[in-house]
């Protein structure tokens, strides 16, 4: 394989790794999408505030990343491909890789007004839209927090590189540079995860995802009833009954076995 292509491939691989991390985060909440019954009106104001905060964090992160990459590469004599890869590594889009989630979310947002036009289930759809808006807001707040953490990680990395240089221990390979970045960023991210702000944001996102999921199920329940399909609640009832019957059966079998054993003992 052409060495230049190899380096580019590594950049792509890095981006995929970043996406997988973002997907892990998205799964966490995406797997749990939710919502609640007769909900208050969507808090668009809070969502707009979250959006503004996120945009600011995004701009800051991009500025830091751009300056950082410029310092690392694109100097006379420097390998341009290595510079490109490093630029990718420090590209905030890779840190969050939330673009596809954002796109999907925006598409779903566009469906909101159509839902609300349906008179029969207006309240359920309104609840769904409210829950979706709340989830969007919480996700933006959480992404803002994470962007700030990544920006801090970049700063810490810069300091670490300088400290090594000043101590007469310059980094002698791209791999060593990468290892230092991984170690430094990991420390910052782990510290972030233990912060009150992160835990609160995580909890709010989880709650919002759960609320949305429940709102979706509420709607599904309505249509299942309308068309005569078994509802989730009915199935849950059935499963509960089966579990209880199995429990009783096990207890009866055990009692019977114990009685037999007792009778067999001289």
């Amino acid at each position: 394989m052409d060495p230049i292509e190899s380096m580019k491939a590594m950049g792509e691989l890095w981006s995929r790794g970043a996406r997988s991390f973002a997907e892990a985060q998205a799964n966490l909440f995406g797997a749990l999408q939710t919502a609640a019954g007769p909900a208050p009106a969507p808090d668009f104001e809070a969502a707009r505030a979250a959006q503004a905060a996120y945009a600011k964090a995004w701009t800051d992160a991009q500025a830091v990343a751009a300056g950082f990459s410029a310092q690392l590469g694109a100097k006379p004599g420097q390998d341009p491909v290595a510079a490109e890869v490093l630029a990718k590594v420090f590209d905030p889009r890779g840190w969050l890789s939330a673009s596809s989630e954002v796109d999907a979310a925006l598409s779903r947002l566009a469906e909101g007004p159509q839902f609300a036009d349906l008179f029969q289930v207006e309240r359920k759809f309104a609840g769904l839209t409210t829950a979706w808006t709340a989830l969007r807001r919480r996700n933006l707040e959480h992404n803002t927090l994470m962007l700030e953490a990544w920006t801090r990680a970049t700063g810490a990395f810069s300091k670490a590189v300088n400290a090594k240089a000043e101590a007469g221990q310059p980094l002698e390979s791209a791999r060593a540079l990468m290892a230092l970045w991984i170690e430094t960023a990991n420390d910052v991210l782990v510290e972030t995860q233990r912060s009150e702000a992160f835990l609160k944001s995580q909890r709010e996102s989880l709650k919002a995802a759960t609320d949305l999921r429940l709102a979706q199920q509420d709607l599904g329940e309505y249509y299942s009833q309308m068309f005569g399909y078994p509802t989730r609640a009915e199935l849950d009832d059935l499963h509960k009954t089966v579990t209880e019957l199995r429990r009783e059966l096990r207890a009866l079998k055990r009692a019977k076995g114990a009685t037999r054993q007792k009778e067999a003992t001289p």
């Binding site: 590594m10 892990a24 991984i182």
Partner: peptide, 10 residues
């Protein structure tokens, strides 16, 4: 977090 990021590349 970083192990997750580097798992499928480095």
């Amino acid at each position: 977090p970083m192990r997750t990021l580097t798992k499928y590349n480095l």
